[in-house]
Simulated assay, not measured.
Amino acid sequence: MPVNKQSGSRMRVTEVEEFVRNPPPGFSVETLGSGYRVRCNEEKSLVLIDDFQSCGKKIVFHNSLGRKVKMHNLWEYSSTRKSLLSKEIYLLISACEEQSSVSNKKAARELSVVKQYVVCIDGNEPFTKWQLERGMDGTISSVTGESYRVDIDLTEEMESWAAKNLISDDLMKVKPVWRDASFTLKYYSDALFDFPHWLGFSKRTFKLRMT
Rank of each mutant, 00 (worst) to 15 (best):
P2C: 03
G8I: 07
M11W: 00
R12N: 13
E15D: 13
V16R: 02
E17I: 04
V20P: 00
V20C: 08
R21I: 00
N22M: 07
P23C: 07
P24R: 08
P25C: 03
E30H: 01
E30L: 07
G35C: 02
V38G: 00
E43S: 05
K44S: 10
S45T: 01
S45I: 01
L48V: 02
C55N: 10
G56W: 06
K57I: 00
K57R: 14
K57T: 07
I59Y: 04
S64N: 05
G66M: 10
R67I: 04
K70L: 01
S79C: 09
L85T: 12
L85I: 09
L85A: 11
I89C: 11
I89R: 09
Y90A: 05
L91W: 06
L92T: 09
I93V: 15
S94D: 14
A95T: 08
E98P: 02
Q99N: 06
S100P: 01
V102N: 11
V102P: 00
N104K: 14
K106Y: 07
A107E: 12
A108P: 01
R109I: 10
E110Y: 05
E110D: 09
L111W: 02
V114R: 14
K115S: 13
K115D: 15
I121H: 10
G123C: 14
E125K: 11
E125Y: 11
T128D: 05
L132C: 04
L132I: 14
R134S: 15
R134Y: 12
G138S: 06
T139G: 04
I140S: 06
I140D: 02
S142Q: 00
S142K: 01
V143Q: 07
Y148F: 13
Y148Q: 02
R149T: 05
V150C: 02
D151H: 02
D151M: 04
D153L: 05
L154W: 00
T155R: 07
T155K: 08
M158I: 06
M158D: 03
I167Y: 00
I167G: 02
S168E: 15
M172G: 03
V174D: 15
V177Y: 11
W178H: 01
R179K: 15
R179H: 12
F183W: 15
L185P: 00
K186Q: 03
Y187V: 03
L192D: 14
L192P: 04
D194L: 05
L199S: 10
G200V: 06
T205I: 15
F206C: 05
K207W: 01
T211H: 08
